[in-house]
């Protein structure tokens, strides 16, 4: 049932034509095909069904079967645009496109805003930021007193929430990251420039001729 090489790719659930995906993203056709090699490896790690479920995603991120992680879960949910509980190949390529070094800053800023807007209200609220800080502390085993956390939140909202209404809207976020560009570092994956080198086996399964790629 998994995604087997060559003709079998077309039977992979959610498989989309690499030429079409390349036309919608920053990737070349060859790069989309190389991403399929990565996708196959992740999507077959627990259940070989040609789709990435949350467990497989977390396994690929952490290299071990960890219990729930707020951030990995949030990224998964943003990749799973059709809210099916799984990521298909088209979702995977379109989401990774945001992380390509050549993708516009605006797209990266918008994605990062959605990432931190945990409850999808269109605002990053203080309680969401606190929830993320607590998740980070749990993950890293760093200990911070509650009053320290509140001080960090005060400082952050003083800087980011320019109209001081207790929540950060998209325009405030755009301004805040322009002043703190390091916050967008996680939104760029230099690896995506070299994806065909990292997964050279795509050449053996390529379904398009070199001129098209």
């Amino acid at each position: 049932m998994g995604c087997v090489p060559s003709k079998g790719r077309r039977q992979c659930p959610g498989y989309e034509d690499p030429v079409f995906l390349a036309s919608q993203t920053t990737f070349s056709v060859s790069e989309v095909e190389a991403l399929f090699e990565l996708f196959k490896s992740i999507s077959s790690s627990v259940i070989d069904d040609g789709l990435i479920n949350k467990e497989e995603f977390v396994l690929a991120l952490f290299k071990n079967r960890k219990k729930e992680n707020l951030f990995a879960s949030r990224i998964f949910d943003l990749f799973d645009v059709k809210h099916k509980g799984v990521i298909d190949f088209g979702d995977f390529v379109r989401a990774l496109h945001i992380f390509h070094p050549n993708t516009s800053l605006e797209d990266k800023i918008n994605f990062s805003f959605r990432l931190y807007d945990l409850d999808n209200t269109g605002f990053i609220e203080r309680q969401e930021v606190k929830q993320m800080l607590l998740a980070l502390l749990g993950e890293s085993e760093m200990k911070l007193a509650d009053e320290t956390i509140e001080a960090i939140l005060d400082k952050t909202f003083l800087e980011a929430d320019t109209n001081q209404d207790g929540k950060i809207d998209l325009s405030e976020w755009q301004y805040f990251v322009s002043k703190n560009p390091s916050l967008l570092r996680i939104m760029t994956l230099p690896y995506l420039r070299d994806i065909t080198t990292a997964f050279p086996s795509f050449v053996f399964y390529s379904e398009v001729d070199e001129a098209a790629a």
Partner: peptide, 26 residues
Amino acid sequence: ASPVTMNAFELISKSRGLNLATLFEK
């Protein structure tokens, strides 16, 4: 830098769960 001098998002962005580079590690 001390966590107190950093803004919350600088801290949050250090989460391993947000580091998608590990997807590419074999």
